[in-house]
Write a protein that binds this DNA or RNA. Structure first.
Lengths: 216, 216
DNA sequence: CTCCGGTTGTGGACACTGTCAACATTTAGT
DNA sequence: ACTAAATGTTGACAGTGTCCACAACCGGAG
């Protein structure tokens, strides 16, 4: 019978029904994920913050894992937005090849920067067991309507269109580029590269993208 | 007052002290990790399988996380062994450059194959929070005494010695190669590439290594 | 407007977990 | 032989995810 007001303070709820509990629960879960990753999402605490009984969550999510999946999709969407932002900041040169390359770099850079800025969310984006491949799930998309994976694909298509990537090299190119950047982000966050500070990581990340450009 | 005999059957223990509880606990935890990753390691169940009271574990591990770290190191050691095995299966050509390249490929191939063969263990190898960089921790090493990271470094050194990798390109080369292969393994296990079967993964993995060779 | 079925939230319970403090047994060193 | 340290046990506690039965509310059919 309690809920959160606009300032996130607990307050008595007048209506028996919450109104928008699904979103409230999801947003609380996202905040927890930002702080400590998937392990930090605890069902009872989520409902507590929403001012609702623990079991109320089960009217909106089948179980805890369903909530985690929802957060995972939200995380992917946030990543997509971060990549889109990086893309818009490209200053166009007019040269088709150069612009296409800049776009690919922007995707990689946005990916790495997001991983550093939001490690908790990033960790959830691609590590939550979900049956279907939701690489094209709208819930995982950004403002452009594209998921991170699709944004990468689009950048590679531009590279082909610009003549900078041979069509016979196009197949699986997403996977190669993705693997490199994703692996780097993982090693940076919870691997042997944890000690690196932001500027180091930025520098090495750019070199990593160089390697991908050469190798694709 | 119970313990496991040689056939892993529960049996009454005659001695009050277990004898080798540390190893017994660790091995039980490793088996659980093989089946379900870090989440599958539950302290009480570990002690149960060892035929010992739950709190006995606290005489050997500060808390659950300490146990996870120990398993993580064991997982790294197992990975090192898998890579070493892949290396020994190289048929030497006599050509220095070719042999060095084969060695680098063996490291990557062993890495990917281990990830597929032991997904539970692999997931623990590099994703358990541990303060120190144990890239050179003997507990994480294989038969050769080298950790996976060091095995990769050695392969890259050979590549330089053979003249196939310019010395000015040597720096950070571990990170680049590692990132690509590690990211690929991650995407394969718990990412959008989950649907791929073993032969597909093997094929694409080899192409991925091609990219690294070109790009380094 | 009334009634009634479905939706949403509550209360109480259960089995299970990690961890703590106090105690018991065994081992090892003087 | 005696004592201190190491190792294992008992009992307890707070906290978790989930199940079942019940309560309050909402929207549409009559």
């Amino acid at each position: 019978m309690n809920t959160l007001d606009n300032n996130n303070k607990l307050v008595k709820r007048s209506t028996y029904h919450h109104g928008d509990l699904y979103r409230t629960l999801l947003e609380a879960a996202v905040q927890m994920a930002r702080q400590g990753g998937a392990d930090a999402i605890v069902l009872r605490e989520v409902t507590r913050q929403a001012g609702v009984a623990p079991n109320a969550a089960y009217r909106h999510f089948a179980d805890r894992n369903a909530l985690l999946q929802a957060v995972s999709q939200a995380a992917q969407a946030a990543l997509a937005v971060a990549i889109e932002r990086e893309i818009t900041e490209i200053e166009k040169s007019g040269d088709l090849v150069e612009d296409a390359r800049a776009r690919l770099r922007a995707v990689g850079t946005g990916y790495i920067r997001f991983a550093q800025a939001e490690p908790g969310l990033f960790g959830m984006a691609f590590s939550i067991p979900s049956d279907l491949s939701n690489a094209d799930n709208p819930a995982s998309a950004g403002a452009s309507g594209l998921t991170p994976f699709q944004l990468l694909g689009a950048a590679l298509d531009m590279l082909v269109a610009a003549g900078s990537l041979k069509p016979e090299r196009r197949m699986y190119a997403e996977i190669f580029a993705w693997s490199a950047v994703h692996g780097f982000a993982m090693l940076l966050l919870e691997g042997p590269l944890r000690a690196f500070d932001k500027t180091q990581a930025e520098f090495i990340g750019q070199r990593l993208i160089d390697m991908v450009e050469r190798g694709l």
